[in-house]
Design a protein around this nucleic acid. Structure first.
Length: 416
RNA sequence: CGGGGCAUGGUGUAACGGUAACAUUCACGAUUCGGGUUCGUGAGACUCCGGGUUCAAAUCCCGGCGUCCCGACCA
C-alpha cells in the first residue's frame, strides 16, 4: 500500500485525556479512533493488525477442531431468564434495548445461552459430540469504568469458543488441548515470554479456571509468578491450599501486575441443564452436555502488544501481526531516481508476496523517519541518493534499531 | 458505584474577574531535501451545556454531560 493513499494522519501529541501507552500510541499512529470512553473504531492500519491476530487465532482454533460460526449481538430476554442472568442484579454490565413492540432485548456480553439453545437443534446423541464452535464477534459490556485504552472497553471484538463434550474426561482432554492452542497464540503474537498461565477462580464446576496473563505495569490484575514452573497464581486464589496443590512455595513467587489476555473455563453442565441441552448416551440414558468456554479479546490483545512491545518513539509490531512487514521510505521527490528505485522495489516486493508499505509522500525526511518509527513496521528500508551511490539499500530493524546496507536479495532474505 | 482530577481553534498548551494568545495542524507562495527544515501570507473558537454572582466571567459558585485516574466490580 502507498502511504499517500492512507487517509489517516499521525499526530505529534496524544489527546490529553489518554494516559495509557497503548491508547496514546495507537491514536497517535492513526490505528484507532476513540468514539467515546471504551469505544474505539479500528482504522485501516489497526484493522490490519486485528485481522492478523484474528487469522492466528482462527488457525489455532481450527487446529484443535474448532469450527467457526457467528452469532448475533441481539439476544432475547427469555433465554437469559432461564439461566437467571437477565437481572441487572446478577449481571451488572448489560446493555439492554427494546423492540418497537416493547419487547426487551440484550446486547450480548457473552454467548453461552445462545449457543447452547441453538445447539439443541443439532445435538441429540453421543454421536453428535463433541462440538467445538467458536466465533469472532462483537461483545457489549456496560462497564462501570472503561479504562486504559483498548484494555477494558464497552464494545469489543472477542473470540469465544464453546466446547460441548459427552463427559468430564473428554472435556478435560479438550481443555488441555486448548491450553496448547492458547500458548501458541500468545507465542505467535509476540507475547510468549511475558505471558503466564495463571490459576484463577473456577466457579461452580471446577476448582480453577485458567487465565493467560501478560506481565505489564498497565495490567489490572495482581498475580504471583513462579518463573521456575512458568505459571502464576491470581491473587484471588492465593491460599495455602492452592500453593500445596500446585507444588509451589510462597517464597518462590514474585508479585506482578498483569493483563488478562485470555481465559479458559470449564462450565460443566450449568448451561446445558438450565436450557435442556441433553444427549442420549450409548446406554440410551439422557445426559446433559458438558461444556467449556474459552475467550480472547482481540482488541485487548492488540493493545497489550502495543503496550509491552513499544518504545518512546512508537509501536514495534512483531512480523506476525504487523500491518505491513516492510516500510519502504523514499527520500527522493516524485520522478527522482531514488523515488523510481523505491517504486520498483515496492512493486518487486509486492510480486514476491511481501506486505509492503511505501512512503511515497513528498515530505521532509525527518518526518518520514518519525512516522516510520511511530507506525512500527518490523523493517524499514530507505532509498535515497546516498544509498543509490552505494548501490545498496539501507535496512533497519525497528525492534533492535540495527541498520545494514544490503542488496536486493539480501533484503528479501532478511525480511521474508 | 464511592473518591479525586481535567474541560479553551482539528491537536497540545497560555490568558490577575477587564479586547481569548502561542505552537502545531490546514491552505497558498517561496525555501529545503538523511531525523518532524526555514520564512512569508492566510484559515480556524458562541472558551462542554444550563443556571447563578458581578458593571464585567474562559476565570468565581451551583447543577449536569463528557473524560481520565484511584478504589470497588469484572465468564
Amino acid at each position: 500500500m502507498r502511504q499517500s493513499q492512507l487517509f489517516t494522519k499521525t499526530r505529534r501529541e496524544a489527546p490529553k485525556e489518554e494516559v495509557s501507552t497503548n491508547a496514546k500510541l495507537l491514536i497517535r499512529a492513526g490505528y484507532i479512533n476513540k468514539e467515546m470512553a471504551g469505544v474505539y473504531s479500528f482504522l485501516p492500519l489497526g484493522l490490519r493488525v486485528r485481522d492478523k491476530i484474528a487469522g492466528i487465532i482462527r488457525e489455532e482454533m481450527n487446529s484443535v477442531g474448532g469450527v467457526e460460526l457467528e452469532m448475533t449481538a441481539l439476544q432475547n430476554q427469555e433465554l437469559y431468564e432461564k439461566t437467571g442472568r437477565w437481572s441487572d442484579d446478577v449481571v451488572d454490565n448489560w446493555f439492554k434495548t427494546k423492540l418497537k413492540s416493547g419487547t426487551e432485548l440484550g446486547l450480548g456480553f457473552t454467548h453461552e445461552e445462545m449457543i447452547t439453545e441453538m445447539l439443541k437443534n443439532h445435538i441429540s446423541s453421543y454421536k453428535d459430540l463433541p462440538v467445538y464452535a467458536y466465533q469472532i464477534q462483537t461483545k457489549f459490556r456496560n462497564e462501570e469504568r472503561a479504562k486504559s485504552g483498548l484494555m477494558r472497553g464497552r464494545e469489543f471484538l472477542m473470540k469465544d469458543l464453546y466446547s460441548f463434550n459427552d463427559n468430564q474426561e473428554s472435556l478435560d482432554d479438550f481443555y488441555d488441548q486448548m491450553k496448547g492452542a492458547y500458548e501458541r497464540i500468545f507465542e505467535r503474537v509476540g507475547l510468549g515470554d511475558l505471558t503466564y498461565i495463571t490459576y484463577a477462580s473456577g466457579g461452580t464446576f471446577s476448582k480453577y479456571s485458567h487465565e493467560y496473563q501478560t506481565l505489564s505495569e498497565a495490567g489490572e490484575d495482581t498475580i504471583y509468578v513462579s518463573e521456575e514452573k512458568k505459571l502464576a497464581i491470581n491473587k484471588e486464589v492465593l491460599t495455602e491450599e492452592t500453593l500445596s496443590e500446585l507444588g509451589v512455595k510462597k517464597e518462590d513467587l514474585v508479585e506482578k501486575k498483569a493483563i488478562e489476555v485470555g481465559n479458559i473455563f470449564k462450565l460443566g453442565t450449568k448451561f446445558s441443564s438450565a436450557l435442556g441441552l441433553i444427549y442420549t448416551d450409548e446406554q440410551g440414558e439422557k445426559q446433559p452436555v458438558v461444556m467449556g468456554s474459552y475467550g480472547i479479546g482481540l482488541g485487548r490483545l492488540m493493545g497489550t502488544v502495543a503496550e509491552v512491545l513499544s518504545d518512546d518513539k512508537g509501536l514495534i509490531w512483531p512480523k506476525s501481526i504487523a500491518p505491513f512487514t516492510l516500510h519502504i521510505v523514499s527520500l527522493g521527490i516524485k520522478d527522482s531516481e531514488a523515488y523510481k528505485v523505491a517504486e520498483e522495489l515496492y512493486k518487486h516486493c509486492g510480486e514476491k508476496g511481501l506486505e509492503v508499505f511505501f512512503d511515497d509522500r513528498d515530505i521532509a525526511a525527518g518526518e518520514k523517519f518519525a512516522d516510520a518509527d511511530l507506525l512500527g513496521m518490523p523493517y524499514r528500508v530507505v532509498v535515497s541518493d546516498k544509498t543509490l551511490k552505494e548501490g545498496k539499500f539501507e535496512l533497519k530493524e525497528r525492534k533492535s534499531g540495527e541498520v545494514k546496507m544490503v542488496n536486493l536479495s539480501e533484503l528479501l532474505a532478511i525480511v521474508k
